[in-house]
Nucleic acid binder design. Structure first.
Lengths: 135, 135
DNA sequence: CTAATTGTAACAAATATTATTACATTTAAA
DNA sequence: TTTAAATGTAATAATATTTGTTACAATTAG
């Protein structure tokens, strides 16, 4: 995760959690994060697909949480934005004629999956409500 | 971690764990991984700094583990190769005039640090010996 | 109607990662 | 003592990923 996707998503969701159900525009949110509004809208598309937010188009439109902040687990947020695996890419071209090369990726996959599972359990214990309660 | 650094490091270390203390050359290791020998030597420099391997220069030179595979924890390997934080970068330019923007990075930092700590405890329970026992 | 907004595609710019070349240095062995 | 085989590392190039931008169609309240 050498990117800002999770940070951006949590920032967006924290703002929405504090908006009391009011619709916030991508432009307004972008101003708080310090990024381009299109970045926000793209991230919104991802959060929307995951059922975390809902948007209304058109004048006076905007976005709000699709369910209470108490019911949004941080694991859901992570899974929505996640692309690459937590611990990295596997090896791309291991040599199948080498006993290690032949099996390394299975072994890495197992390790990485287990690590990710542990992380999910950790994040599942935390809610957006808790995370954003300090603001 | 959208890179292959940990995978490469674990591949290298697994080969060394199976070499019975024999010195392996970066060229040979590179052939098993399927990357350029210089990539291996660069990663070696990192593992060496962490005290996990030792190298001998010159003809008939190469690299071997600096301590038994039973004593190398995967958390040590992770910490040696890690650059970015586990869950990503913080927001770069949050708006300090916004209550959320002002504190978001502290909050993200706390969350990310906790997640990383959990991961370290998980990886500290695993050794290179276990990881490479299947080869 | 009109103005404000979302949604998204297409493209550009910036950054990060991986690969390559080159060569100085080291060292065993012929 | 010379040579060949290594490491170590700097410099640079090539790729891939991430982030930013522009443009515009579609939607909708007023």
């Amino acid at each position: 995760m050498n990117n800002t996707r999770l940070s951006t998503a949590l920032h967006i969701l924290s703002l929405l959690a504090h908006s009391e159900g009011d619709l916030l525009t991508s432009e307004w949110i972008a101003g708080s994060i310090g990024v381009n509004p299109v970045i926000v809208r793209k991230e919104m598309a991802v959060l929307k697909k995951a059922g975390l937010v809902e948007s209304l188009a058109g004048k006076e439109g905007g976005t709000r949480l699709a369910k209470p902040a108490q019911k949004i687990k941080l694991s859901e947020v992570y899974q929505a934005v996640q692309q690459a695996t937590l611990l990295g890419k596997k090896n791309l071209q291991p040599n199948p004629n080498c006993p290690v090369g032949k099996k390394i990726n299975d072994q890495l996959e197992a390790l990485y999956a287990e690590a990710e599972e542990k992380l999910m359990k950790f994040l599942a214990k935390k809610t957006l409500a808790e995370f954003s309660s300090v603001f």
